[in-house]
Design a protein around this nucleic acid. Structure first.
Length: 579
RNA sequence: GCGCUCGUAGCUCAGCCGGAUAGAGCAUCGGCCUUCUAAGCCGAGGGUCGCAGGUUCGAAUCCUGCCGAGCGCGCCA
């Protein structure tokens, strides 16, 4: 419809033969206020200056040239020179039929044209269970993927597994120490070690499967160590060294692999329960083992962006807009996380995606310039690359802010959060706010069964419609779809008009939410739609004796039900039949 | 100090690819259940859109400066 009107206006503009060099694109907007009709254009205002005409006069001239079709009931000038279009009733009712026909695919678009997108999100280090911060990234990424797919994009959801870094050794040695403590008391546990309960669970599982084969004399385990109090990082590195020598390569890697596998399985299970599925789990270790990290450093070297300083290899990122040059190979010969990331992104580009999107926690935003720098150094198309930042979620219990700290091992995990407030409310609350906005997550509100809770408010609207359909049977009526569609013109109450107006805006909202990566706008839309419905519900009866009106109203609310369900499912939230 | 993000009602936030009287929820106050789920609805009050300039026919929206908040500035990941 929008395109139709744009075309008509465009023709009208052309027919006026104004002496203007470049006529801007005609923009047709949905009006915010019903009094302004259904669509409006500001073209007369935009052209007025160049045409050296009064905008209202220009608008008048345009209107006279506009071919009014059957769909448009009225065209008028308003305000400083807007042209407002009023649709005919029949044109407006068409949305109900479309929803019935297209069902769960209603509002889908094709701008994506099957283009392939790689969407990387969560990518938390497999050193422990996911916490509430990761949850927001998970909900956001999964929803963005759903939204993009509605617009015809092919989205690969990817989790980058940092299974190669130093942190993994810290995890392995933490597990081993907990394992050793099953045979005798340890003198101490390293400050930098992982102290969570899950580490002990992994240790116990190891004991169950392997018995005491990894047990070593504690004196040798803690022999020749620096002071933990002085520098906990140096201390734990030394412990890792001891572990590797005492256990030997085979035993050490058995523990290492068991630790990584166990944590990863937990993460996978957690995300699956949360309704977040990945197409690809990309292992950092696979980059290391295949030599692709060295390879990518080499290509940078050939292009003259690598130099040696203080025994380390540096990437000259400042040449390409970054604040500092970055180390890729440390003095001790170990490559940095950034080196892996170069190889990883190179790999994504090689896989031929049209668009590559990384979802980062906001604390990683400083990372963006260096990635852009190496993309340029590698002569890759930087415009294909996008970073979406997700701010932190702060948990509240009513007014009380919950303290979270990873170092003590007392963090709130995603699983704990899901178990307390449920998956639906968790998913919804996470995406309710714009991603780059801090999120106050009120646990009490998320759990409350009242209209204060937006998720229940929307689900309740859906359940109410289901309930109406059940009542229909009880009252001995039957829904006659054909009769309903033949009598849509009976829907003349303001609440009915409002619902139709709202439903007509769905496709635009969906497209906008997808293209701008803004799930929150779909959430807000659903709240508005539910609000319109509840208003209608309280003002009028649906199950009236007049069959024509009854069936017409049922058509209307069944369309509403479809849209509520469509939207909720895209957000990863269920649409229950009863509450 | 430099960089990124943000500043809208008492609170939590929409609106920000320039447009018509700046919206919603919560909280406060006042109404609505012999009728399809009151987990609901209707109404009222509440605003220098951080401040000051600039661009424009038109600025919450774009630009500059200032003030304030958060985050980032490792041979960590």
């Amino acid at each position: 419809m929008k395109e139709k009107i744009a075309k008509v206006v465009e023709e009208a503009v052309a027919s006026l033969s104004l002496h203007i060099k470049n006529i801007p694109e005609i923009k047709i907007d949905r009006t915010r206020d019903e009094a302004h009709g259904d669509f409006a254009t500001n073209i007369a205002l935009v052209l007025a200056k160049d045409a050296r005409q009064n905008p209202r006069m220009l608008a008048q001239a345009l209107i006279e040239k506009i071919d009014v079709t059957d769909d448009i009931e009225k065209v008028e000038i308003a305000g400083p020179g807007f042209i407002n279009f009023f649709l005919s009733k029949n044109a407006k009712f068409a949305v109900i039929k479309s929803i019935f026909d297209q069902k769960d695919r209603f509002g889908y678009g094709e701008v994506g044209a099957n283009k392939r997108i790689n969407l990387e999100f969560v990518s938390a280090n497999p050193t422990g269970p996911l916490h509430v911060g990761h949850g927001r990234g998970a909900a956001f990424g999964a929803t963005v993927a759903n939204l993009l797919e509605t617009q015809g994009y092919k989205v690969d959801k990817e989790y980058y597994v940092n299974d190669a870094g130093r942190q993994m050794h810290v995890l392995a040695v933490s597990v081993w120490l907990r394992y050793l403590s099953l045979f005798g008391d340890l003198p101490s546990f390293p400050r930098a070690g992982y102290k969570g309960e899950y580490v002990i669970d992994i240790a116990k599982a190891l004991q169950k499967e392997h018995g005491d084969v990894f047990a070593k004399d504690l004196a040798s385990v803690f022999a020749d160590l620096p002071n933990d109090e002085l520098d906990k990082e140096i201390y734990i590195d030394a412990l890792v060294q001891n572990a590797q020598t005492l256990l030997g390569e085979h035993s050490y890697s058995t523990i290492f692999d068991a630790a990584v596998e166990s944590v990863l399985n937990d993460i996978r299970e957690d995300l699956t329960e949360f309704g977040v599925k990945f197409d690809n789990w990309f292992s950092e270790a696979s980059l290391v083992n295949s030599g692709r990290i060295d390879e990518s450093i080499k290509t940078l070297q050939e292009r003259g962006f690598i130099y040696k300083k203080n025994g380390a290899l540096w990437f000259a990122a400042t040449k390409l807009g970054d604040e500092k040059d970055r180390v890729v190979v440390r003095e001790n010969g170990i490559t940095t996380y950034f080196a892996s990331d170069i190889a990883y992104h190179l790999d994504k580009y090689k896989r031929g995606y049209d668009k590559i999107i990384d979802v980062f926690g906001a604390d990683h935003h400083g990372y963006l310039p260096r990635i852009k720098a190496f993309l340029q150094a590698e002569n890759l198309d930087v415009d294909k690359f996008n970073v979406l930042l997700v701010q932190f979620a702060i948990l509240y219990r009513g007014k009380i802010k919950l303290q979270m700290s990873t170092r003590s091992g007392e963090f709130v995990t995603l699983r704990e959060l899901r178990e307390e407030v449920g998956n639906d409310a968790t998913r919804f609350f996470y995406i309710m706010r714009k991603n780059d906005q801090h999120l106050d997550f009120d646990l009490d509100l998320a759990k409350s069964e009242s209209s204060d809770n937006p998720i229940y408010y929307i689900q309740y609207a859906h359940a109410r419609i289901c309930s109406v359909m059940r009542q229909l049977d009880d009252k001995g009526f039957e829904f006659n779809e054909k009769e309903g569609f033949n009598n849509l013109n009976l829907l003349s109450e303001p609440q009915e008009q409002q619902l139709i107006r709202r439903m007509r805006a769905y496709s635009d909202t969906l497209e906008r939410a997808a293209l701008n990566y803004e799930p929150h706008s779909l959430a807000h839309y659903l709240q508005d739609l539910a609000n319109d419905f509840h208003g209608f519900y309280n003002a009028h009866q649906f199950l009236v004796d007049d069959a024509a009106l009854r069936n017409a109203r049922l058509c209307l609310i069944l369309a509403v039900k479809q849209l509520l369900a469509n939207g909720l499912i895209l957000l990863g939230v269920s649409a229950p039949d009863t509450m």
